[in-house]
Nucleic acid binder design. Structure first.
Lengths: 218, 218, 218, 218
DNA sequence: CATGAATGAGGTTTCATTCAT
DNA sequence: GATGAATGAAACCTCATTCAT
């Protein structure tokens, strides 16, 4: 992938929605709702068709199989979820401006992914549910996340550790703590207990505090 | 219930559902394997029967529906997962002996649940996969965990906070950090990346360190 | 069959209940109830076993197949239903004593069969339901009724007609009117509308009146 | 509903459910044949499909359950069976033209229902067989027959009785005699002994004679 | 492009019957 | 004699997918 895509361009790129007919959009919307609700395997194409207000056959005009429909929905989200880390320039930019301050980095990541999950709740839910069952997803995630993003982040962690600001743990472990804490918050907030009465700003702040205390030296 | 059950006794107790015939055991084993592998909805009873080496009808002699089979497998695990927190005396004991030392408590919980998940990997995986789709599971978890265990733990947290040893956050939030960090580790270790080359003792130690740094005052 | 059986002997004969073990009796009782309720084909042996309080296998120790159980229940009733007409002596007796008076004959038949159906409601219901589906029943009925009873009754009808007391119709047709009227009453009374508030004596009287008016000359 | 429907129009009307595809018609035909032959519970959808020359799934595209198929076949017949009594004007008409003559009325009913049963033998057989097992049928019959038709007929009977032409019995009882005699004839003729060598015109005439003698004064 | 009837493989479940205990 | 676990065929029904219109 070229290194010169802007984020905007990247997102536009993965938003293939643009080329969709009205009916196709309806199909995707209905499928998202039903997949999120009862899971891929328990969802039936006829139910999707009914909810979308199209004929059963119409789905298969756009997606050769039910699985293709799932992939068309979830795969762009995998990419978009990793997007901020993907474009090397972007991380480069970040690290230049903000690496002085690991706190800033963590705040940025949390805030950023919070917004993303908030906006894409159902698809993220589908991804979480189905990642167990589809090697393709795990492969995609591995490819996208590990290869591109992790390296950069690990470099940053090592960089902070060498500056003496961050605790001495294997960078993979540090990464695990960060991801675990952030995803744990988002998971509790949006997936597990979305009906609780959350004070989002406060919880975000606590999560950052916890990470900083847990990972920063002194 | 008598107050003098040890954990060992309790676990043996809940295991004593085991008035199972040979064939029934085979069915349960096969079902666990297949449910864990492809998920409840995508698993077929005929496949389970074949793997168990029994006739398909045999499954339904013991479990009225496929769902009943799932529940029979998963529900005891929910209880057992919460068992260490359930017996009031046990927590009482802990808090008496160890409340001087929150570190001891966290070590205990982590070690304890680590062993549990290690021993029950497939069923825990099934639970994680299916908790999205079966309100019964969420209800059971809510009943078992929140009602009994959480109260006790929250009290402990408040107790530590009042002693000035623990950071000032809502106890629910502290709990979320603890659970998130421990479960995040276990999830990465056993479910998401079980094939990585983990140094378990080291990772457990880091996780504890992270929690202590993140949550303890000074 | 010998001509010297008394009715009592005949009934005792067909009441094989005598040789039944306690469990077998329970099975038959349960089967009657369930067959009458949901029909033979929709009744399951396991349901019968449960209601009878015996093991599933026990049924098949006494009756080789489910169909055998049905036959064991219904066939004696076919015989018993026709019993009053079967024993030649009996009809001979009747005709000697009562042929002066066809009214007496009709009253006797109606009263007699009324008591029988009343006492054997569920089995009669089963017979009516299943006669459509089992040639064996139709064969049995044909054998028992037509061969033995009908001839005698037709003779009687011809006898009355020759005496100028009864309308001139084919005796089969007269028989149809009698059977139809009596069975129609019993069917409405016990099977179709058993919950209505019947004045049985009155309705029996009307039925006799109707038959007499309809079939007697003058 | 307009008051000007003739019976012919009405029957055509209820037949106009017939927006059936070729295959659907085949399914219904096959189902009628098999239901009539072995009863609803003992008929299998796979047998119906085979006889209809369609895939088994095709049945369930048109009828959600096997029971729905049964109802789709039988319910219109219940309505049609009662149709001649349903249209108020029709009975009104009859009573105006023919109430001078109860004989005319009975002849009309017998003739009319004779033709109907003759044309709809298998479905009527199914109805008779299944009415025992499906409360829905009994409910439908009650609704259709009792509510609409019976009242009118009872009024007529009372009318005849007041004119001194008909015997003094409760009108329900008179009705029972009429229905019993007519249905008894039709049942014997078409269901129970259809293979006998019937002289239909003669038997109809005898039935009428029997009813007239039995119910008319002098 | 869209439809929806049709398919047929496969799903879960029921059930009469057998047989070792 | 009685039990009830086990069977496996067959029941009803669902569903992704195809294709003529």
């Amino acid at each position: 992938m070229s290194e010169h895509f802007s984020i905007e361009e990247l997102l536009r790129l993965t938003d293939e929605d643009v080329k969709m007919s009205e009916k196709q959009k309806k199909v995707v919307e209905a499928a998202i709702e039903i997949f999120a609700d009862k899971g891929f395997a328990a969802a039936s194409t006829s139910e999707i068709a009914k909810k979308a207000g199209v004929a059963e056959g119409t789905i298969f005009r756009h997606y050769q199989t039910k699985k293709d429909l799932l992939f068309a929905i979830v795969k762009p989200t995998i990419t978009k979820f990793a997007a901020p880390f993907l474009v090397k320039n972007f991380i480069g930019e970040i690290s230049k401006q903000k690496h002085e301050d690991p706190e800033q980095l963590m705040r940025f990541i949390l805030e950023n992914r919070y917004e993303f999950v908030k906006k894409n709740q159902p698809v993220v839910k589908i991804l979480l549910q189905e990642v167990f069952f589809h090697e393709e997803f795990r492969g995609e995630i591995r490819k996208v996340i590990e290869t591109h993003a992790m390296e950069k982040l690990k470099e940053l962690i090592v960089f902070f550790q060498e500056k003496g600001e961050m605790v001495e743990m294997p960078p993979e472990t540090v990464l695990r703590m960060i991801v675990t804490s952030i995803m744990g918050f988002l998971f509790a907030r949006f997936i597990l207990l979305p009906d609780l009465d959350w004070d989002d700003e406060e919880e975000k702040e606590y999560t950052i505090q916890f990470l900083l205390h847990g990972l920063m030296k002194k």
